[in-house]
Each structure stands twice: as C-alpha cells, then as structure tokens.
Amino acid sequence: MAKSRISRNYAAPDLGKPLRRAFFGRSVHEVAPDLIGATLLVNGVGGIIVEVEAYHHTEPAAHSYRGPTPRNQVMFGPPGFAYVYRSYGIHWCINFVCEKAGSASAVLIRALEPTHGIAAMRRRRHLDDERALCSGPGKLTEALGITSAHNGLALDAPPMALYARVEKPEIVAGVRIGITKAAALPWRYGLKASKFLSKPF
C-alpha cells in the first residue's frame, strides 16, 4: 500500500505518550473506556477518540462469536492490530484487537473529534461541518482514508499512530448501536457531552 506523506502535526507536542501494542493486551472492557480521550492518527490525519464499543467473543454481536473465518482472522491474532471490515457492503469500520491471541475481542472506534488534517478530512468527506466529519464508524474511516488495506496493520507503526490521553475524561456508558444480538449490554463508551458523538447517550 502506498503511504501518503506524514503531516507536520504527526508528532505534535500536544499529543500524549505513544500507545504500544502492550496497551491492548488486557480485557476489552478495560481497553475500551481507556481509549476515550486518546488520539488516533492515520498518516497524520485524525483526532481524539470520543466514542467506542467493546465486543467480546463470548457474545453473539461479536464477529468472532462463531469462530475464525477469512474475514475475521485478524481478531484471533495478537492484540494491538487493526481489524477493518466492510459494514453492509458500504462503509469500512476499524476495530482495535484486544486481549491475548485467540481471544478474538476488539474495540470498534465509533467517533472522533477532528484535530489533525481537517482539510484532508473535508476533501474526503465532501463537507465542511467538523462535527459531522467523524461522527460515526463509517464516517471516520472515510475521513482518515481507512480501507481494507489497513486490515491487520499494527496500531503502533506507520501509517497508524495512537497517543494516550493527556487528561482523564468524564466517560459515560450505554448500550451499543445498530445491533440486534446482545443489544442490552452497556458496552458503548463515550466522552460526556461531546458534540462529536455518533448519537447522544
């Protein structure tokens, strides 16, 4: 995959400490809320994670529930890698694989607050409203240029970069969105009162 130029903001001083793959080698229920306030960049374009959902292999909403397939194989590998899939044949979605190899649990990144490369996001999304650039899993992948080419890539190596949150945010939790199985589980986490959420809590 051809890698585009890294923006000058890629290692901006306002970013926190880089997150390494070891960060993801924990329970998906620990990792998911800890990602709120972290910064995700792809080739220097991205922003602050404000909404995520946790998926565990023991519940039927997880893609890994029925075992490994060519589509979900990355989920069964080691933690700290990207699992990218096509939703409804239309939108790409990015997940961060968590827990030990074989657990097949992951965190879906649902929304970002744009902070880096906003001009590039606007070109890709064909709109100006910053609040709508990354307010959904399909929107943010389009804004960041994420496709199937990113499936299986390490989260701590170019073109991907993750930075720990600088301050601990106020986090809210609720049920996940757009699923019919295990729909009552409160495994959606978000930044309280953020205007960049895909849907209010």
Rank of each mutant, 00 (worst) to 15 (best):
Ala2Tyr: 14
Ser7Phe: 05
Asn9Asp: 15
Gly16Tyr: 00
Leu19Met: 08
Arg26Ile: 02
Ile36Asp: 05
Val42Ser: 09
Val45Lys: 00
Gly47Ser: 07
Gly47Arg: 04
Val50Cys: 11
Glu53Asp: 11
His56Met: 02
His57Cys: 02
His63Met: 00
Tyr65Ala: 05
Tyr65Phe: 15
Thr69His: 02
Arg71Trp: 01
Phe76Val: 11
Phe76Glu: 03
Pro78Tyr: 07
Tyr88Ile: 03
Gly89Phe: 03
Val97Trp: 02
Glu99Phe: 13
Ala101Gly: 00
Ala104Arg: 12
Ile109Glu: 00
Ile109His: 04
Ile109Met: 01
Ile109Tyr: 01
Ile109Trp: 02
Ala111Gly: 12
Ile118Leu: 09
Ala120Ser: 09
His126Phe: 12
Leu127Ser: 09
Asp128Glu: 13
Glu130Cys: 13
Arg131Ser: 07
Leu133Asp: 12
Cys134Pro: 11
Gly136Ala: 04
Pro137Ser: 08
Lys139Ser: 10
Glu142Val: 06
Glu142Lys: 10
Ala143Asp: 09
Ile146Tyr: 03
Asn151Glu: 00
Leu153Val: 09
Met160Glu: 09
Ala161Lys: 03
Leu162Tyr: 10
Glu167Phe: 00
Pro169Ile: 07
Ile171Met: 06
Val172Asp: 08
Val175Asn: 13
Gly178Thr: 09
Ile179Arg: 13
Ile179Tyr: 04
Ile179Pro: 04
Thr180Ser: 15
Ala182Leu: 12
Pro186Gln: 10
Trp187Asp: 05
Trp187Arg: 05
Gly190Lys: 07
Ser194Trp: 10
Ser194Arg: 12
Leu197Pro: 09
Phe201Met: 12
